[in-house]
Design a protein around this nucleic acid. Sequence first.
DNA 1: GCCACCGGTGGC
DNA 2: GCCACCGGTGGC
Length: 225
Amino acid sequence: MSDSVAGDFPPDPLLASGAFISSAGDGTLDSSAKRRPIQGGIGISGSGESVRIGMANGTDQVNHQTESKSRKRAAPGDNWLPPGWRVEDKIRTSGATAGSVDKYYYEPNTGRKFRSRTEVLYYLEHGTSKRGTKKAENTYFNPDHFEGQGSNRVTRTATVPPPPPPPLDFDFKNPPDKVSWSMANAGEEGWIPNIGDVKVQDSVRRDWSTAFTFITSRNPSKVSA
DNA sequence: GCCACCGGTGGC
DNA sequence: GCCACCGGTGGC
């Protein structure tokens, strides 16, 4: 009764639509590029970390008993994470707190890293991160930028790969008048969009997500000196 | 007591 | 200056 539509997505929330994730440049995953030389040499570097894809995949653990936690611990899985985001559990290898785990969240397109759910949510709302961004808070949803992005002068540093070509179907000029969201199944899939009585297709929803991600990621945070 | 979050620091 | 990591605290 459920394998029809809402079953489970392919493990590639964003890639499916157009596959652009241009994170190539900044080596998102293997941060082996920099990464401080962990002393002690405990070989946890590779095997100690488990990276998971955000989104409904952890269906295996059907143990979603407490859905209404509270502010903290409110994320048994990572259902609050927008599709495409990655979560990385990093185990501390030294110090008094060695063995404890830090969670890091990675934005799909730019690979930007966040240390907490709070930071991610903040970023999703403001399009910029609190920390590390002293100024430049001008990133707001502005459809016009979207069109002219072919050759604008935005002097973005080479740090961030060029904004992904938007292979989207999302019509920025004519967004749906109203979208109602319904909770499909607490804790599993999260919210499902409906326009009128019609459930929004998965692919469409994914485009929305991609569009959103794109918008929120094309900000000039690195404009430093 | 456990867990998530954030500040601060040290290394590069 | 940036980034990764650890320490410590507050909330539950």
